[in-house]
Structure formats: structure tokens, C-alpha cells
């Protein structure tokens, strides 16, 4: 049974239809990717799932419960966590504090208890700190808990954002371009890390990614968006050979001239490598 099912989701900005009548499913425990050219509506779709945008039409069901009318915090409580294309850590909190605040929902201490310093609160805080240290270790930041988030190197910031998302004990983790701006070695590391996440914690993972090596390497299913619509879906092999995908990436007519399929994927990388740095219009 799919963990998340989106049916006929449509999101418009004024005259622009960013996501158009999209059907999408993700299986429990799988790793899936959304790809597509810039402005294809990938981040918009993420924002629809996470409650940042209200959708105009359609339905999004998570674990049997419709979530399209819920607030962001309620969606987080159901077990959906996300990261952001342009990292959005709490820059003036330490790495440790970022993870502590990420556990917000799972801590139960009331403010009155905190003022009185009750035993329950102290135990709760102790657990929270232990869990935060565990997560820091898990993402390889064990010695950097006291550093300000904004002072961490780029790759560490990405990992810290994942750790903050994990602090919410998510069942579905949405990763928005987790390897953006990373060098090949770093993105290889991140790929390993994502697979490790799923294998270790059983978290279902949906990612947006431009780096085809990453996408093809870890996805069990790939969905291709173009102008807000799904133009292809399938295993990495199926996607690599789909003529519609090649056309979407290379433009009309190039599919014919490019002709032979093996060259298609490196070409995709070349097109996307330069563009991935800039945010898509819908993500702002």
C-alpha cells in the first residue's frame, strides 16, 4: 500500500499552472525521485505536500488520511519532514539546538513544568539531548554540536538539515536537492547517506535532484515532471530510454537528432549542471 498518494493535484499561481493534474504515489520504504527541467513544478509539488501551499484541486492522502487542508505543523506531526533547496537552518542556533527544536513535537514537557523544573521535564530534556547527540553522530557531526549552524561548512549544513528533519521521526522524508552545490565526492557521500537512512531507519524518501548520477543510482522509481505535468514514470532504466523525457530535456527535435540513447543522459547532466544553482521560480 502506498504511503502517500496524490490524486489530480493542481496548483496555480495567477495564470501559471505550476502543478497540473498530477497523480503520484510513493511506496512505503522506497526511495523515489522527482526530476524535470527548472520550473517543472517539482519544488511546488513538495510545498503542496508539506502544506506550504494550498492546492486548488485534487487530494493528497498520507497513510490513509487526507492532508491537503492541514497546517504545516499538523503535517509534520503526521510524520512528514522536509529539507529545503536553499538550506533553511536556524542560523543563529547551534547545531545541537537545531536538532533539539526539531524534536519539538516529540517532547512533552509543558512550560509550567519547565518553570518549576519538575522531574518529568528534566528527564524529557535529558532524553532530548541524548537523542540530539545520537542524531549528530548519525549524520557525522558529532564534534560540531556547539557550532552555530551558520558557521558549518556547506556539506555539514545539508547534513544538519537532514538531521533536523530526522529529529521529527518522519515516516516520509522530502529532500529538496540534497546534493546541490556539492562536488562529486560529497554528492557520492550524500547518496550513500540517503541509502543508509532508508536501510537503517526504514524511512520512505522522496527527493528532488538534478544530479543524474545520484538519481539513477539510488531511486527505485523516478517521476519526470515537465510544465507541471507528469510525462514519464518508471525505473531508472525506463526513464533513461523514454523519448518524451529526452525531448523535454533537450527540446523538440533534438530527440531525433540525438538519436542514440546512450548519449542522452550525459547531455541531461550538462544542461542541468549550470542551472541547478539558481532556484526555480516556484520555489521562491
Amino acid at each position: 500500500m502506498p504511503l502517500l498518494t496524490a490524486t489530480a493535484v493542481t496548483k496555480k499561481f495567477g495564470g501559471l499552472t505550476a502543478v497540473n493534474n498530477l497523480d503520484f504515489e510513493i511506496e512505503q520504504g522506497s526511495i523515489a525521485s522527482l526530476i524535470g527541467p527548472n520550473g517543472a513544478g517539482k519544488t511546488t509539488f513538495f510545498n503542496c505536500i508539506a502544506g506550504f501551499y494550498q492546492i486548488e484541486a485534487g487530494q493528497i492522502v498520507f497513510d490513509g488520511q487526507p492532508i491537503q487542508r492541514l497546517r504545516r505543523d499538523q503535517i509534520a506531526h503526521l510524520g512528514i519532514s522536509r529539507t529545503y533547496q536553499n538550506i533553511r537552518l536556524f542560523a543563529n542556533m547551534t547545531a545541537m539546538e537545531n536538532i533539539l527544536v526539531g524534536q519539538h513535537y516529540h517532547l512533552r514537557s509543558s512550560w509550567i513544568g519547565a518553570v518549576l523544573g519538575t522531574k518529568g521535564v528534566r528527564e524529557d530534556e535529558g532524553r532530548a539531548h541524548r537523542e540530539a547527540r545520537r542524531l549528530l553522530r548519525f549524520v557525522g557531526l558529532q564534534n560540531k554540536g556547539d557550532l552555530l549552524a551558520s558557521n558549518l561548512p556547506y556539506g555539514d549544513q545539508r547534513r544538519l538539515e537532514v538531521a533536523r528533519a530526522l529529529a521529527n521521526k518522519p515516516r516520509l522524508l522530502l529532500l529538496d536537492e540534497p546534493t546541490a552545490g556539492m562536488n562529486p565526492a560529497e554528492s557520492q557521500q550524500m547518496t550513500e547517506f540517503i541509502r543508509h537512512l532508508r536501510d537503517e531507519l526504514g524511512t520512505t524518501i522522496l527527493l528532488i535532484e538534478h544530479e543524474m548520477r545520484v538519481v539513477m543510482g539510488i531511486s527505485e522509481k523516478i517521476t519526470v515532471l515537465h510544465y507541471g505535468q507528469k510525462i514519464a514514470e518508471g525505473t531508472p532504466i525506463q526513464i533513461q530510454t523514454d523519448p518524451l523525457v529526452i525531448e523535454a530535456y533537450l527540446g523538440r527535435g533534438s530527440a531525433g537528432t540525438a538519436g542514440h540513447e546512450a548519449t542522452a543522459i550525459p547531455a541531461v547532466e550538462a544542461t542541468q549542471g549550470g542551472a541547478s544553482a539558481g532556484p526555480t521560480p516556484a520555489s521562491a
Binding site: 508539506a50 502544506g51 506550504f52 497546517r71 504545516r72 505543523d73 503535517i75 509534520a76 506531526h77 519532514s81 522536509r82 529545503y84 533553511r88 536556524f90 542560523a91 543563529n92 542556533m93 539546538e97 527544536v101 526539531g102 519539538h104 513535537y105 533536523r164 521529527n168
Partner: peptide
Amino acid sequence: IAIREDEDVAEAIGI
């Protein structure tokens, strides 16, 4: 403090 830093992210974290 999280709300002060970034209200949207704070909410998405479950606050």
C-alpha cells in the same frame, strides 16, 4: 527562538 529565526520552517518542523 525558532519562530523568530524563520517562522515558516519552524511551523514545518511541527511547532
